[in-house]
Design a protein around this nucleic acid. Structure first.
Lengths: 114, 114
DNA sequence: AAAACACTGAAGCATTTACTTAACTATTGC
DNA sequence: GCAATAGTTAAGTAAATGCTTCAGTGTTTT
């Protein structure tokens, strides 16, 4: 479910906005209500709710409503999925460089086959 | 330079688009020319160049032109910076959970402050 | 019961984004 | 030199995004 391309797309899209990253940052220090999330942001509560809905749709944030207050938390599994996507590509690149280095060392060749 | 918020913003914005992620994915398997990057994508060369320029501005991709062909490579440092941003937030959250768990175990309390 | 609080949803609007096409500039091969 | 190749740039456009305001809905507090 978390490695599904559509979900990955929603996550990166969610992380693309500075206000949403600021919300994630705030939530990384502990749960918060919608108003608490909104407080440091220079925009209406309504705008914050819209951002929050995207964050929730992406899976990065989970919320639950008790009475009139919606409490938000980070979903670490989702963060890990985004991290993983990047990590895989970086490692693929670095492994390739390593193999290339080994090859050049073994053959004493100094050309690259690209 | 890489942890500068403006650069982080450009990176996440760059990663938000599926076509650009596909290009990064392709480049993780090795360097490629603009046309090679364009080949699997259902859009004009021109559109690909525009995506590529964003990727380069974000620092995720480095390019160099030799003759008439522009060769593109991944910049692993930049990928690492994006990875790092996510990782820091996730770890902050998980450390907080750990501390909370320790506290509850020590006091024998079974309520959680959420 | 009335007022304050914590959101929520819809409509509208300005900007940004992701393209397209078309005209153009260098290289390279014949 | 001429044509093909590889990429670049500009202008235009349709759709998506990030807001705003305003009019709600439930939930506490007094």
């Amino acid at each position: 479910m978390l490695h599904d391309p559509a979900q990955i797309d929603l996550m990166f899209q969610a992380l693309a906005d500075p206000a949403r990253r600021q919300m994630v940052d705030r939530l990384s220090r502990g749960p918060a209500s919608v108003s608490q999330l909104a407080e440091p942001l220079a925009m209406s509560l309504s705008a914050v709710v819209q951002h929050l809905n995207l964050l929730e749709a992406s899976g990065l944030v989970r919320t639950q409503k008790l009475g009139r207050v919606r409490t938000c938390q980070i979903e670490p599994k989702a963060l890990r999925a985004a991290e993983h996507w990047i990590n895989e590509r970086r490692l693929a690149w670095e492994r390739r460089l390593d193999r290339l280095g080994d090859f050049l060392a073994e053959t004493g060749d100094d050309t690259e086959g690209n």
